[in-house]
């Protein structure tokens, strides 16, 4: 009869069975809402983002928030120790989390985080990459795809020039970064499926 909400945006994976479904969801939303707000604040600072229509800003943020959070919180996944730190500060081993029912997504998150951290990006590079991630989110429902594509192109060009300048002998880094975009989309899809399957009664 145990219930777990295995998401590091949560204080802890343990769900108090004495709480109602609404209370459980409410508590979880207190954890992730500040993180979502941070993503929005970050988006507002991306040059050109505020020039998109309000509808397209919301659409991109709805589609891309999870992907941005995966990048921003990649360091919660400690590949060396095989632990995940939850927002409450506690660390949980992979084995413990697997016993709570997490499977493919957990492995995929570790794999993604390890590869991203191995690139050793600076704060500025990571920030620009995160901006690219957001404007590369799923395009369905956008009013003006051309504007979003133009913004994406500008940001990708800026990222390439920054990476080339900072790592003149490592031309593969830029390509590796771009290849992270489809990886993030896959993680997003798996996460969405799990979210839909999660029901609090």
């Amino acid at each position: 009869n145990r219930l777990y909400l295995v998401c590091p945006m949560n204080i802890s994976p343990h769900v108090n069975l004495h709480k109602t479904g609404h209370e459980v969801w409410e508590e979880f939303s207190h954890c992730f809402t500040p993180a979502v707000r941070e993503v929005v604040e970050f988006a507002k600072k991306i040059p050109g983002f505020r020039d998109l229509s309000q509808h397209d800003q919301v659409s991109l943020l709805k589609a891309g928030t999870f992907e941005v959070l995966v990048v921003r919180f990649a360091s919660l996944f400690n590949v060396k120790d095989r632990t995940v730190t939850f927002l409450g500060g506690n660390k949980y081993s992979v084995e413990t989390l697997k016993a709570m029912g997490s499977g493919y997504l957990l492995n995929a998150m570790f794999d993604f985080s390890e590869k991203l951290m191995n690139l050793g990006l600076s704060e500025e590079e990571m920030s620009l990459f995160t901006a690219v991630v957001l404007v590369s989110a799923d395009r369905s429902g956008l009013e003006n795809v051309n504007s979003v594509e133009a913004l994406q192109e500008t940001l990708i060009r800026a990222l390439r020039s920054l990476i080339t300048r900072n790592h003149p002998n490592e031309s593969a880094i830029f390509t590796k970064l771009l290849l992270k975009l489809p990886d993030l989309r896959s993680l997003n899809n798996v996460h969405s499926e799990q979210l839909l399957a999660f029901k609090v009664h």
């Binding site: 939303s29 992730f32 809402t33 979502v36 707000r37 929005v40 604040e41 507002k44 309000q54 800003q57 919301v58 943020l61 709805k62 589609a63 928030t65 996460h191 969405s192 979210l195 839909l196």
Partner: peptide
């Protein structure tokens, strides 16, 4: 819910944050 973003109330949070809702900020 058929949309995970709706499930999380994501659109509402995003809209309020985009508009810079004063009440939300005070929270």
């Amino acid at each position: 819910f058929s949309d995970p973003a709706s499930n999380l109330g994501l659109e509402d949070i995003i809209r309020k944050a985009l508009m810079g809702n004063l009440e939300e900020r005070q929270d």
